[in-house]
Amino acid sequence: MPWGVALVGAAYAVFLRLRGGGVDSNALYVSAALIAGAEAAYVALQARAPAADSRTRWDAPARVVAVAFAALLGGGIVLVASGATGGGLAVEAIGVAAAVISVAAVVLVGARTRDAP
C-alpha cells in the first residue's frame, strides 16, 4: 500500500516539475485524496471483528472523512502561508528544520509512549 501512495506522489511531483510556474493550488485536494485513499485502503486490508454497536460500525468511515477534511484544512493553511512569504534562504532553513523536527517528534513520541510488555 505505501508503494502505491509513494508512486502517486512521485507522479504528481513529475507533473509539477514539467508544468513549472507557481504553486499548484490543487495540491491540497491531491493531499486529501491521498490520505483518504490510504486510510480507506488500510481499513479494507485490516482483518476486523464485527462491530457490536453503531459507533464502532461507523468509526472507520467517519475517520476517513475526518482525516480528508483535516488534510484539506492543513493543506490550505500551508498553501496560504507559502503564498504569503517571499521565499529565500531563511525560509528554506526553516523548512528543513520543520521537516527534521516533524520526523523527530513522531519518533520521540512513539518511543515515549511505548509501554512495558
Binding site: 505505501p2 501512495v5 509513494a6 506522489g9 504528481y12 511531483a13 509539477l16 516539475r17 504553486v23 499548484d24 495540491a27 491540497l28 491531491v30 493531499s31 486529501a32 491521498l34 490520505i35 490510504a38 482525516v67 483535516a70 488534510a71 492543513g74 493543506g75 500551508v78 498553501l79 507559502s82 528554506e92 523548512g95 528543513v96 521537516a99 516533524s102 520526523v103 513522531v106
Partner: peptide, 26 residues
C-alpha cells in the same frame, strides 16, 4: 511516506509535496 515526501519537497523545491506529506506526519 511523510519523511520521503518532506525530503523530496526540499530536494525538488516543490512546496506542494509538503502539503502532500503533511497529513502522513500529523
Amino acid at each position: 511516506l511523510a519523511g520521503v515526501g518532506l525530503v523530496a519537497a526540499l530536494a525538488l523545491r516543490l512546496q506542494e509535496l509538503v502539503v502532500l506529506a503533511l497529513p502522513f506526519a500529523v
